[in-house]
C-alpha cells in the first residue's frame, strides 16, 4: 500500500479527511521554508506538498508567483526540494512534490522519480502535465512506485475525466474554479460538482485545491471531498518575513476546520 493510501485510511479511521498543505521550497529562504514545512506537520497537515519554484508558473496566482520569484532570486535549486521531502518525512507527514514539467524533464523523468523515492516522497502533482502529454513520466513513476497525481477542472470533459482519473494514483487533484491558485470567497456547488464527476469517472480519492483559505471553507469542503488542499493562504501567512507563528495559527485554523466536518 502506498504512503498516500495509508494516510487517507488513517484519517478515515479518525472519521475525517486529510489536510494537505502547500509551500514553495526556498521561500523566504531555504532554511526558513524547511522550518515552515515542519510547522505545517506540527499544526495538523497530514500531507505536505512541496513546490520547487519555477520561472514561469502559469497556473499560479500573484501570491505564489511572488514567493517563487523570491525563492529563485535567493538561489533555490530543484535539489532543495528533495531536501525538503526528507525534512517533511522526518517530521512525520507524507511528502509529495508539485512540479512544473520542465523541471522534471531537465532532471530526466526517471531520475526525478528515483530521487523523489530515495528522499522518501510519495508522489508528484503535475500542474502543466496531463497524462496524455507525458506517458514517459507515468511509466517512470510506476517503475519507482511513485504516485502520479493529475489535475481535473470544471472544464474537463467526461472523456478526459476518465483518462485523468485512470492515470492518477494516490488521489485526484480537483480545482473547483477556473483560474490560477489563490483565495476565493465562494467555492460550494462547483467544488461539489467536480468531485462527483471525478468519482463517477472512477476516482477513488478526490481532493479539492485552489481557493480554500478559511477554516469554514475547509469544513465545507471536507464534508464531501476526500481531502482539502491549502496553498496560497499558508504562503501569505508565512510571508516575506518568514513568520512561523502566524503560519502556525493559520494551519491550526484549517486543521480544526477539517476536523469539524460531519
Amino acid at each position: 500500500m502506498s504512503a498516500l493510501a495509508e494516510v487517507f485510511d488513517a484519517c478515515q479511521a479518525e472519521g475525517r479527511v486529510p489536510l494537505v498543505g502547500y509551500l514553495p521550497v526556498g521561500y523566504p529562504d531555504v532554511p526558513t521554508s524547511l522550518a515552515a514545512m515542519r510547522v505545517l506537520v506540527e499544526a495538523g497537515c497530514d500531507i505536505v506538498e512541496i513546490g520547487p519554484p519555477y520561472s514561469d508558473p502559469v497556473l499560479d496566482g500573484p501570491v505564489i508567483q511572488h514567493a517563487a520569484a523570491k525563492a529563485l532570486e535567493g538561489g533555490v535549486k530543484v535539489d532543495d526540494a528533495f531536501a525538503a521531502v526528507r525534512a517533511v518525512a522526518e517530521a512525520g507527514a507524507v511528502p509529495v512534490v508539485m512540479s512544473y514539467a520542465n523541471l522534471m524533464l531537465q532532471r530526466g523523468w526517471s531520475r526525478f522519480a528515483a530521487d523523489l523515492k530515495a528522499a522518501g516522497g510519495a508522489g508528484v502533482i503535475t500542474p502543466d502535465l496531463t497524462p496524455d502529454a507525458a506517458p514517459e513520466w507515468v511509466e517512470a513513476a510506476r517503475e519507482e512506485g511513485v504516485d502520479t497525481i493529475f489535475l481535473v477542472a470544471p472544464s474537463t470533459t467526461r472523456e478526459r475525466m476518465r483518462l485523468t482519473c485512470d492515470a492518477s494514483t494516490g488521489f485526484v487533484y480537483a480545482t473547483p474554479l477556473m483560474g490560477v491558485t489563490g483565495e476565493r470567497a465562494a467555492l460550494g456547488d462547483a467544488a461539489q460538482r467536480v468531485v462527483s464527476e471525478a468519482r463517477a469517472a472512477g476516482a477513488a480519492r478526490v481532493c479539492i485545491g485552489v481557493g480554500v483559505s478559511t477554516g469554514a471553507q475547509a469544513t465545507e469542503i471536507a464534508g464531501f471531498a476526500d481531502g482539502v488542499i491549502v496553498g496560497t493562504a499558508f504562503v501569505r501567512a508565512l510571508g516575506d518575513e518568514g513568520d512561523l507563528e502566524r503560519l502556525r495559527a493559520k494551519v491550526t485554523e484549517l486543521a480544526e476546520g477539517v476536523r469539524a466536518a460531519r
Partner: peptide
Amino acid sequence: GGRFVPEALMAALD
C-alpha cells in the same frame, strides 16, 4: 511540439 498545459485549458484547445 505537443501540448503541455494545465488540464483546465485542454477542452478549450480541443
